[in-house]
């Protein structure tokens, strides 16, 4: 006779794997295998009609590291992350503190902050085009009121990346605000009362009580903002196409361009691998440091 517990356990295992099968097939097809294939591809040369692809070890990476455009794009992306992450978090926090306080027109304010979140990046880019266009764009017209000369915001290397950053901040700040707003509403009101009794002012209440309590939310938002600094590149297609002279080109856009405009799959694969490694490090940091507890409850 077989042990009923063993039978039960075996049945659970079969059931568990059967339930997972559809999702695992899709994940394997569109995430796991492509990841491995990308690593593999990055070790082969670009095939031409005369010469088939051949194994070249790390040659593609060497070529990439010798490519000044690649380094420019990396620098751009670091700048993009360095600006959009802190600024959108700060703006989101300010928005949340306002949207949570007792001020008139609160629901209008909340919707106004949140609306950009639900727009496609492409549409957002079109809206901002109207602001940035030299001569008759809104920014230039406002500048003209103060006697400033017309500026081609998207057309000059010094300002193009800034213009791109601003659209990203505009798009994601309202989204991050929501998480702060939720966290703020879980802070018990007696803390505020106690602070008032102690005679603590707004600054010390916010700085000593509210901000520390918001720390987990800030970390969550930080991880999301870091992922977004790789992912949010749709607006480049409308605003600058990475120009002028690559001044606003970001990594994912460059990967797209290498693969689908220059047909240089090995270069694209090598860059993808580097991005995957960066994201993997971020994932490891998240799992090991930030929220070990919440995931394995």
């Amino acid at each position: 006779m077989q042990d009923p517990i063993a039978i039960e356990r075996r049945r659970n295992t079969i059931n568990g794997w059967l339930l997972l099968t559809p999702a695992l097939i899709m994940l394997t097809t569109f995430a796991f295998l492509p990841t491995i294939a990308t690593f593999w591809q990055s070790l082969f040369s670009r095939g031409t009609r005369r010469r088939p692809t051949e194994f070249v070890e790390l040659e593609n990476y060497r070529a990439l590291f010798d490519d000044p455009t690649f380094w420019l794009v990396v620098t751009n992306n670091l700048f993009y992350a360095g600006i959009t992450i802190p600024v959108s978090i700060l703006v989101a926090l300010t928005m949340a503190l306002w949207a949570n306080s007792k001020i008139p027109a609160r629901s209008f304010i909340r919707s106004a902050y949140f609306t950009p979140t639900i727009l496609p990046m492409i549409a957002a880019a079109n809206l901002w085009l109207f602001f940035y266009t030299p001569g008759f764009g809104v920014l230039d017209q406002i500048g003209a009121l103060f006697g400033l000369p017309s500026t081609n915001w998207l057309g000059q290397p010094e300002t193009a990346l800034w213009a791109v950053c601003i659209v990203t901040i505009w798009k994601e700040a309202g989204f991050f605000m929501i998480f702060y707003l939720a966290a703020l509403q879980t802070i018990p009101p007696d803390l505020k009362e106690a602070a008032d009794i102690e005679g603590a002012g707004w600054w010390s209440y916010t700085g000593r009580i509210v901000l520390p309590l918001l720390m987990p939310t800030t970390l969550f938002i930080l991880v999301n903002a870091m992922i977004n600094s790789v992912k949010l590149i749709d607006h480049l297609f409308i605003l600058t196409k990475g120009g002028p002279s690559d001044a606003s080109k970001l990594l994912l856009y460059y990967i797209w361009e290498s693969a689908f405009a220059f047909f240089d799959a090995p270069a694209a694969a090598a860059m993808t691998v580097l991005v995957l490694i960066a994201l993997g490090a971020l994932a490891a940091a998240q799992f090991l440091v930030i929220d070990r507890r919440t995931h394995y409850r």
Binding site: L27, Q41, I255, L276, L279, L282
Partner: peptide, 17 residues
Amino acid sequence: LQLFILPEVLIVENYVV
């Protein structure tokens, strides 16, 4: 892990698939 390995990053190989 797939929360981080975004489909967006795998565009090249996903196109092959």
